[in-house]
């Protein structure tokens, strides 16, 4: 069953034209109209309008619009065809337009435990990995900020350097290390700590190691930024007022580095939630994460509508709340920055 070919200018489909027009205006937030009016009246300069319009239009076309397409397809049905989904709008034989909205895909997400388990699992694994990153990254950032001035830049470079090599290959390296007869098991057996190789690969542990390893630089860098910007005289003042170094760390350094802690945690948590490569290469059948579910739905099951529904749900359930939280954090960070000044 092939979809009817619809040329763009065909008057046969006026409804979809107005729908797109409405969505277009909604996307632009009426700003485009206002700009054009401003240009006509000479209140907005053409140069500025052009500078704004080029990236704006690019992002609307290739970032905003695609989401509307995803939204649309998430309401259609999978069929074996090219493309493999049914159109929402069809023409019945007597010239009446039919809009078929299909909620089946979203119902599936709720009913099938696979999907919401994958959501919960993604959040849980990303959260544990974020805490682990923090536990390793905070002392590292602290140590770098306390290192001799001429050592700090090389130490930071060494943190960033792995980022410039291929991400995929760095994840791949852990396969060789964590395999049953891999490097880590061999070392542990050689040390006499274990007799039998441990099953390390294809477990949640290996996924966590992979995430911590890949995202550690994103934790260390913002933490270093806040720690190195901190006024050394605050710690001197605390010592002068009778505060021992350990306590000064807890009462002064730690609270003042919270903006860095939150920024770093966000930089690790957000991409980790949607991660595909790490759970795919290092995880096993029990480490379901939502990115991998979407991938499988799309590439293996060829079910584009369900994959779209998973994407929409992920967007609404994960990305939007995270962004909201981050916005709120940024506001309070700004306040904290003012405080620190």
């Amino acid at each position: 069953m092939m979809p009817p070919p619809v040329p763009p200018s065909a008057p046969a489909n006026p409804a979809s034209f107005t729908v797109i027009g409405m969505l277009w205006r909604w996307l632009l937030g009426f700003t485009f109209v206002a700009r054009v009016r401003g240009l006509a009246m000479g209140t907005v300069s053409w140069g500025r309008a052009l500078v704004t319009a080029v990236p704006f239009l690019w992002l609307i076309l290739f970032f905003g619009l695609p989401f509307l397409v995803v939204l649309k397809i998430s309401f259609s049905q999978a069929v074996i065809a090219q493309p493999p989904y049914t159109p929402l709008l069809t023409w019945a034989e007597d010239g009446i337009m039919v809009l078929r909205i299909n909620f089946q895909n979203y119902l599936l997400l709720v009913q099938d435990s696979l999907y919401w388990m994958a959501y919960l699992n993604s959040v849980r694994i990303a959260a544990i990995a974020t805490v682990a990153c923090l536990l390793l990254g905070y002392p590292m950032a602290y140590a770098i900020s306390k290192a001799k001035a001429e050592l700090r830049v090389p130490l930071l470079m060494l943190i960033i350097l792995p980022f410039w090599t291929s991400f995929l290959i760095r994840v791949y390296a852990w396969i060789g290390i964590l395999k049953t007869n891999g490097l880590l098991n061999n070392v542990l057996i050689w040390l006499g700590l274990i007799d039998q190789p441990l099953p390390l690969l294809h477990t949640e542990f290996s996924v966590l190691v992979g995430i911590v390893y890949s995202y550690l630089p994103f934790m260390v860098l913002p933490l270093y930024a806040t720690l190195s910007r901190m006024d050394e005289s605050l710690l001197e003042a605390a010592a002068d007022l009778g505060c021992r170094p350990g306590k000064a760390f807890l009462t002064i350094t730690l609270p003042l580095s919270m903006p860095g802690v939150i920024a770093g945690s966000m930089l690790v948590f957000i991409p980790a939630v949607g991660e595909f490569v790490i759970p795919d290469l290092l995880g096993g059948p029990n480490t379901l994460m939502i990115g991998k579910v979407l991938w499988t739905e799309f590439f293996s099951n060829k079910d584009w509508p369900v994959a779209s529904a998973v994407a929409v749900a992920t967007l609404l359930l994960l990305v939007v709340p995270i962004v909201r939280f981050q916005k709120a954090q940024e506001e309070s960070n700004k306040k904290a920055e003012e405080l620190a000044r």
């Binding site: 005289s233 605050l234 001197e236 609270p255 904290a336």
Partner: peptide
């Protein structure tokens, strides 16, 4: 008394 005052901002 520090030159920058070193007041704890938080």
């Amino acid at each position: 008394m520090f030159q920058s005052y070193a007041l704890f901002p938080h």
